[in-house]
Amino acid sequence: MGFRRGAYICRCKDGFYIPNKNKTNFVAQNSLDDNYFRGIAIEEAFISTLVGPTTGVDTFDPQNFICIPCEPGCPTCADDSPCFVHFNIFIRAVTLGVQSFCATITFMIAIAICKLRRSKVWHPPIS
């Protein structure tokens, strides 16, 4: 856009993202890299608070132009979703306990079968 008013972008640093991208008019739309604010939109919003609202421009609120930090451990992100899976330790412990119990019972049955494999089965006489 050259050297003219609003010909810049305010990009969020790595490790930060723009909240509510769908709800704001200040974010670049239809772009693969939409982690920045358009300079012309920022200036229009600021001017609208000084001279009065113009058509289609939201009022300037500094809270609309804040980059939010990503979840811990995320070098880059697009929203507030975590980068790593958070496990439910209770469900994992219950599953491990049931599985260990079944494996122990199976092992005990295998030992009993090995010990008793040569024993004769007694059938009562048929009368």
Rank of each mutant, 00 (worst) to 15 (best):
C83T: 06
N22L: 13
F60Y: 15
L32W: 05
E44G: 15
I126V: 15
L50D: 10
C83F: 02
A103T: 07
V94K: 03
V57A: 07
F60I: 07
A93E: 00
K120P: 00
M108Y: 03
Q99I: 04
C74I: 03
G52M: 13
D58T: 13
P124R: 13
A28N: 10
S100N: 06
R11P: 01
T49M: 15
Y8S: 10
N35P: 05
F107T: 05
V94H: 00
K115Y: 04
K120M: 08
H123P: 02
C70A: 04
P62K: 04
N22W: 08
A41R: 11
I18C: 05
C67K: 07
K21P: 09
K21C: 08
I111W: 01
V27L: 09
I89R: 09
N30K: 13
Y36D: 05
I47G: 12
Y36I: 10
C10F: 15
S100E: 00
P124W: 09
R5C: 11
E43C: 15
M108K: 05
G56L: 10
D79W: 00
F60M: 08
S119C: 05
F87H: 11
C74W: 01
T106F: 07
M1Q: 04
N25Y: 10
C83E: 02
C70H: 01
I111P: 00
N64R: 08
G15C: 09
D79V: 03
C67Y: 05
T54E: 11
E44K: 15
I66T: 13
A28G: 14
K13Q: 15
D61P: 00
D14K: 14
K115V: 13
K115W: 01
K21F: 07
R38I: 14
K120G: 06
T76R: 09
V98R: 00
I40P: 01
G52P: 10
L96R: 03
T95Y: 00
I113T: 02
N64P: 00
G15Q: 06
H86F: 02
I126Y: 10
P69K: 09
I40Y: 12
Y8V: 10
P72E: 05
A93Y: 01
T106A: 13
C10E: 11
T95C: 02
K120A: 13
I18H: 03
P62D: 02
R4G: 12
Y17P: 08
A78L: 08
I66S: 05
T59F: 09
F65E: 04
F46M: 15
